[in-house]
Design a protein around this nucleic acid. Sequence first.
DNA 1: AAGCTTTTCGCAAACCTTTGCGGAAAAACA
DNA 2: TGTTTTTCCGCAAAGGTTTGCGAAAAGCTT
Lengths: 342, 342
Amino acid sequence: MEKVHVSLKDLAKELKISISSVSRALKNHPDISPELAQKVQELARQKNYKPNPYAIRLLKHESKTIGIVIPDIVTYFYASVISGIESYTKEKGYSIVISSSQESYQKEQNIIENLLNLRVDGLIVCLSQETADYKHFDKILEDNTPLVFFDRVCRTSEISSVVADNFEAARNVTRHFYENGCTRIAFINGPNHLNISKERLAGYIEGLKDCGLKISNDLLASCNMTPEGAKVATQKLLALKVKPDAILSINDTVAFSAMKEVKRRGYKIPDDIAFVGFTDEFHASIVDPELTSVMHPTFEMGQEAARLLINQLESKTPGTPRQVVMKTTLVVRDSSIKKQKK
Amino acid sequence: MEKVHVSLKDLAKELKISISSVSRALKNHPDISPELAQKVQELARQKNYKPNPYAIRLLKHESKTIGIVIPDIVTYFYASVISGIESYTKEKGYSIVISSSQESYQKEQNIIENLLNLRVDGLIVCLSQETADYKHFDKILEDNTPLVFFDRVCRTSEISSVVADNFEAARNVTRHFYENGCTRIAFINGPNHLNISKERLAGYIEGLKDCGLKISNDLLASCNMTPEGAKVATQKLLALKVKPDAILSINDTVAFSAMKEVKRRGYKIPDDIAFVGFTDEFHASIVDPELTSVMHPTFEMGQEAARLLINQLESKTPGTPRQVVMKTTLVVRDSSIKKQKK
DNA sequence: AAGCTTTTCGCAAACCTTTGCGGAAAAACA
DNA sequence: TGTTTTTCCGCAAAGGTTTGCGAAAAGCTT
């Protein structure tokens, strides 16, 4: 049951040469004669020699590993971003270690501490929903461990990040609603302290202004972005004397849940209430009616975050933090196009 | 920009004692006087000493890391299983390194080789769709690296695995259809060489026999489990002279896509065609009508796979391979209950 | 043939930790 | 006081790799 790996020493002993010669021979160092190099490489292949990465990491002080902290791995958005991260890091020869905070501030802190103790070369983080203070990132900065945020971000003046064009996207959606005959446009938002909530809210408001629509607190609801929370928020909106004729949702999952509740109450989508979501996950085109959604380039966001991080940790100089804003596009489907405009 | 971590040597120098004493003091070894231990621990805390995991791994020949190989991380089922693996391994002090094969045999091989070179302590694998020969697992076995399969498995007589009760589940679904008035029950299956396909097909056939229904090749379609593949398979079924009145799908994603196509053609679900899927992902209750599905205990499957693996690698003896079969339950929703039985 | 350059390889330190063993000093005992 | 035990700590090896430097051997020049 014992794993037994051959080491440089084993090869050296067998060939009756020194360890350093074996090491050099394997990488075609000019100090080694071609004949010896040949012989060493032959034996190495035959005995299936693979360098022990832990010895190298110990020596080089780098792990070729990056840590990823996300709120939840089962959510389409995060899984897809991870997929992009994985694609870029694999290409660059890095491994990824993934931990999920389950939206818990406490767990987020623990995870980060663990990852730091693991000596990852860098971190890519999406804040948990509970996270409202950001002191625990001081440790990372003091450690000189490169860090990149995506989607839910903070301290952007010090730390690089990748986000969507939330403001513009929300503003566009609001106009899109208006152009399709909606005048009472509601917004089911996420927790107020998150940047995505703030930015999308600001865009929503700006869009209302653009269209000359009144801003009404009645039409604003927030939720914790769970299906249950979305349902409650929807019920609040449906309880209004004058009901909304459109609902913008902070993400697709919330939209799905809200749509379900709206249909259950007997309203028609989109004629009674139009819908638009954020993310554009696969299921947006599966639900009935198909959901209009702000398409996020999730895979590319992951790649970009990884690129930012690896650039940072391969250039010795600290470099100024960068804020990458990814362009989204509105994918228009049935849920937002009223057949009978008022 | 240089990361600087304090080592035992640093502490030793500062306290003018030997490295070994520092090491022992930190773990309250009886050879160290309480006063000295106190002093050392004090300094360690103050200077934020954290042991270098790579030095320990080098010494101990274990990495406290397990590798996970899955076809695709963006799929609900896999993400959810990973979530279960993560929960168990975190509890046991292991990290996980995730790689996805993207359903490619070639990539699967590369990944496994990489993970082995990384010296992970063990592997948890779900076969890619392309994988039809299993020689590349010899390397793992020769390496004495513990290995556990889940869902899509092979070589079960030599290698432990965690699977759902596919045969029973499919058989039950078939009966469920029959009890709800369906007599022409179709099955959109996955690739024929996969165990999940074979087992579910066998259960489906057995169920037909139970109900005294004829087995017809016309009612069998297979696909590559993508939405597009599912669409094509559905079209084949809808092209029959006598159409099916029920469709069992190899998973929910396939069911969603098939439902979409069926609705697009103007058929009513469930009255014209009833539906049941496998997995029971979140969206099963979001689509319209809500999808009846075989609920897999995904999270628990992940936990179980992790438990199997860690047991195996913590007990020095090889132990006999175990096959864990997880019980599923049929979650009945609207898609399979016809309002008007024939 | 003597001196010089080039080629080819080995020694040893370094990265950080754990641990068996030995040794000195202190304490306990006779 | 002399001897034995106990307490407390350090030495050194081990794990596998990389790399600066020194040294031997071979080749070359004149």
